[in-house]
Simulated assay, not measured.
Amino acid sequence: MAINKPILFILIILSFSQLSRAQSFRGAWEIGVSAGGAGYVGDLNQYNPVQVSGVNAGIFVKRNFNSYLGLRFNYNYGQIKANDANSSNEQFRERNLSFKTALNEGSAIIDFNFFDYAINDGTRRFTPYLFAGIGFINFKPKIKYQGETYRLDYLGTEGQENGYKNTALAIPFGGGFRYNYKDNWSIFTELGYRTAFTDYLDDVSGVYPANPVYVGNNPGLNLSDPSLHQTGAAGVQRGDFRKRDTYLFVSVGISFTFVSSKCYSF
């Protein structure tokens, strides 16, 4: 799932517009926590962009420049997984691939409120908002077999000599709704997607290798081609042809805003 470039462009324009129009305002720092579900769209889940397969939790520190615009720094932890054996698609069930990974994400995100939000002298106690930014993601796809856990990124299941990098850039984007329910306290809910600059969140990107990877004993498991009838011929595509995986966090959270009386001018 690729980022919607027109929406991102509009968000950036609106953000700079608000900065240029502001003559003076009270700045405010905000801290918050969130939790919810995590999911992914990729080679093992090609068609359901809202499928949740794990959990997420996060913390953030945010600078609110005015009642419309803020910049937050996030850390999010999540877990995602997928298993062809659970698919409704017969071809995927035959392919029989699976993975599970933890996600560690750090990001810087611009928030844009649609309404004049109550924090920082705004007039509205609620507002929908959009966000976009840049970050990085660390992932470690694994599989468990015969009681042992194997790191797929180390094993080169598609013939990679030294595996592949398990850290990549990510582009967060999405939207949500926040409500100032008491004094400096707010609650919020948001849905955010992340386009990862890697196709290996699920360990699937290229083709079946000529020399597959086996683990375990008697007879062991072919990690490169665990298909039910060993149908993965060398050189045949293992997954889809998209070059980037996407993951999502759907969250609810609570935050506290420290309002400052110092004025800034632009």
Rank of each mutant, 00 (worst) to 15 (best):
82 A>I: 09
62 K>F: 02
176 G>M: 05
76 N>P: 03
61 V>C: 03
28 A>K: 05
95 R>Y: 04
203 D>H: 00
29 W>F: 13
12 I>L: 09
159 G>L: 06
229 H>F: 13
113 N>I: 05
164 Y>S: 03
232 G>F: 07
64 N>C: 09
122 G>I: 13
265 S>Q: 10
63 R>C: 09
141 P>M: 03
54 G>P: 06
93 R>D: 03
128 P>V: 15
228 L>C: 03
28 A>F: 02
200 Y>W: 10
171 I>K: 09
259 V>W: 04
218 N>V: 06
95 R>N: 03
160 Q>M: 05
10 I>N: 07
251 S>K: 06
95 R>G: 02
103 L>C: 01
91 Q>I: 14
134 I>L: 13
137 I>V: 15
88 S>L: 12
39 G>S: 01
248 L>R: 08
12 I>T: 14
47 Y>L: 13
62 K>H: 05
107 S>Y: 04
85 A>T: 14
7 I>K: 13
262 K>I: 10
215 V>A: 08
15 S>Q: 04
226 P>S: 04
261 S>W: 11
228 L>S: 09
239 G>D: 07
76 N>F: 02
48 N>Y: 13
257 T>H: 06
218 N>F: 12
73 F>R: 02
155 L>S: 08
257 T>N: 06
262 K>H: 14
206 G>L: 04
24 S>L: 11
48 N>I: 09
101 T>C: 01
90 E>T: 14
223 L>K: 03
254 I>D: 00
29 W>T: 04
169 L>E: 04
175 G>Q: 07
177 F>P: 05
138 N>M: 09
153 D>I: 08
185 W>M: 05
194 R>A: 00
131 F>M: 15
213 V>Y: 09
89 N>V: 14
78 G>L: 04
144 K>R: 08
